[in-house]
Structures are given as structure tokens and as C-alpha cells.
């Protein structure tokens, strides 16, 4: 079972996130960057499948140089190797072009049976890259999995959304995305952290991956941000201390606002 895990480095949600004034892209320098939490779970799921069925886990990441930290984290958890698509021309790439580029990179990994991604990232929240990667590859999409099972040459998941829980099945190769509820990711051990330093990370430029620079970046984007501005933070209103009348006070406030 050869598994590719798609991982993304994102600004830490605890730090302030901004857009650059110059071109309205995410200001990646202004915030601490971390391996997206959901991708730790994607790596964990891949490792569990490898432990049960054998094979190899390859981490694939598209992002700037410093995304190496996120890749090392995934390797220290136990992934075997990594491919990092890194090129200055990728700056500003939109979601469909990201999916096309990731599909190209997946194509450089030999004999892939399964791609595992997070269901949505905490920065873009497109929640659609895994589905779009499946579209480009022409592979079945089994997304928003709270449970994944492999049986011979087929994969079965439980997809949990607002609409309820669906059981979804397909033949391999396939693209799976996992939700927060899938597992608890392991902590990298000291041994794992040391071993990760020696694991192979192939860095690809656009040319290496066979991607034309005109297909990506701000120039290649099929949508453009034309304006952006921070919203003035919401102001605090009234704060009172409950002295036995707190509930009544709220009701009076709501009535005054015509909310009752």
C-alpha cells in the first residue's frame, strides 16, 4: 500500500493572521507557521494503514521553503519520505491550480494506491482541494471520513457531514480526506525526530514537476482578490456582574434591542 499524505503548512491560528497590502495574499511571514493540525491526523491515518497493510508513506507538500519544518514534523511522526514542491512562482496560486499542481507531484511518486488529505485547512478553508485533486487524477473521492477501512483493493469510509453519515466505497487508487474525529495523532518520539533528519526529501521546482509557470501563481489564477481590508474589531459593549438579577438584565437588554 503506497500512500501519499498531502500536508500543508499554515499560520498558527493563535497568532494574528493578515493579508499583505501589496497583492492581498496571505502574509506568511507575519505569523508563526505550523503543520496544519488536521494533517497530523492525516499522517496518523496513513501510518496506521501502513502498519496494518505494509507499504510506504510519502509526504507531499506545496509551499515556501520554510514548509520544510512541517514536512520534518510529518517525517518525525513516521512517514518514510517527502516530496516538496517549492518555487517562487507558486506565490498566489489559487485552489484549482493548487489541485492541478499537487496532482502533478503525486504523479512523480511511483505506484500510489491512496492519497490522504485533511478535509479542510485552517487558513484557506477551501475545503475542496482533496475533491479537486480527485477530479484532476480521475480517481474516486472519499472525503470527510471519520473512519477509513481498506479491504484488499477497495476502500470504504464513513463520511460525516451535516446531512448525516454516509458509507462510501470505491476501488483503489483513490483520494481520501479525514476530519478531526478520525484519530488522535501520535507525538513524534525522540528517535523519530532524529531519524527524520536523515529521511529523503525531494525538492521539486515547477520545471522539475513538469508544471508550466503560467498555470500557477497570481498570473495563472482564475480568480483575483481585488481589495482587502482588516475589519475594525468588534467593540465590547456593556459588562455587568450578576447580583441575582443577571438573567432579567439580559432579557431587558434583548427587549431593548427588539430581539425578544
Amino acid at each position: 500500500m503506497n500512500i501519499v499524505v498531502l500536508v500543508k503548512q499554515v499560520p498558527d491560528t493563535y497568532s494574528e493572521r493578515k493579508l499583505t497590502d501589496a497583492d492581498h495574499t496571505l502574509d506568511r511571514e507575519s505569523a508563526d507557521a505550523v503543520l496544519d493540525e488536521i494533517n497530523e491526523r492525516a499522517v496518523e491515518e496513513a501510518l496506521q494503514i501502513k502498519e496494518a497493510h505494509g507499504g510506504e508513506v510519502t509526504v507531499v507538500c506545496m509551499g515556501p521553503d520554510r514548509a520544510t519544518d512541517a514536512i520534518r514534523k510529518a517525517l518525525s511522526m513516521g512517514a518514510d519520505k517527502a516530496v516538496h514542491l517549492s518555487d517562487a512562482a507558486l506565490h498566489g496560486t489559487d485552489a484549482p491550480a493548487t489541485a492541478r499542481a499537487l496532482a502533478k507531484v503525486i504523479g512523480t511518486v511511483a505506484g500510489v494506491d491512496l492519497v490522504i488529505a485533511g478535509n479542510e485547512s485552517t487558513d484557506g478553508r477551501a475545503g475542496a482541494v482533496p475533491a479537486m485533486v480527485a477530479e484532476v487524477l480521475g480517481w474516486p473521492q472519499l472525503t470527510y471520513a471519520r473512519k477509513v477501512g481498506i479491504d484488499g483493493s477497495s476502500v470504504r469510509i464513513e463520511r460525516e457531514t451535516d446531512a448525516g453519515v454516509l458509507t462510501v466505497e470505491a476501488e483503489l487508487p483513490a483520494v481520501v480526506s479525514v476530519t478531526e474525529k478520525i484519530n488522535e495523532p501520535r507525538y513524534p518520539s525522540f528517535k523519530g525526530i532524529m531519524a527524520a533528519k536523515k529521511k529523503p526529501v525531494t525538492v521539486l521546482s515547477l520545471a522539475d514537476a513538469g508544471i508550466d509557470a503560467s498555470e500557477v501563481g497570481l498570473a495563472g489564477a482564475a480568480s483575483q482578490v481585488v481589495a482587502s481590508a482588516p475589519k475594525p474589531p468588534k467593540q465590547a459593549g456593556v459588562k455587568v456582574t450578576d447580583e441575582g438579577e443577571g438573567g432579567v438584565r439580559i432579557a431587558e437588554f434583548l427587549a431593548g434591542e427588539k430581539l425578544l
Partner: peptide, 24 residues
């Protein structure tokens, strides 16, 4: 949460919420 609340009550929710329910 009080930094963005239009109306905040510092108190025990088990006292305030039932009273609010009754009042409504």
C-alpha cells in the same frame, strides 16, 4: 469573550441562564 460581547454578564451560568429562560 467579553471583548466582543454586546452584553456580558459576569456570573454563574447555572443561575443566570435559567433565570433568563424563565423571564423570556
Amino acid at each position: 469573550i467579553f471583548e466582543i460581547a454586546d452584553y456580558g454578564v459576569v456570573g454563574d451560568l447555572f443561575k443566570v441562564a435559567p433565570q433568563l429562560t424563565d423571564e423570556i
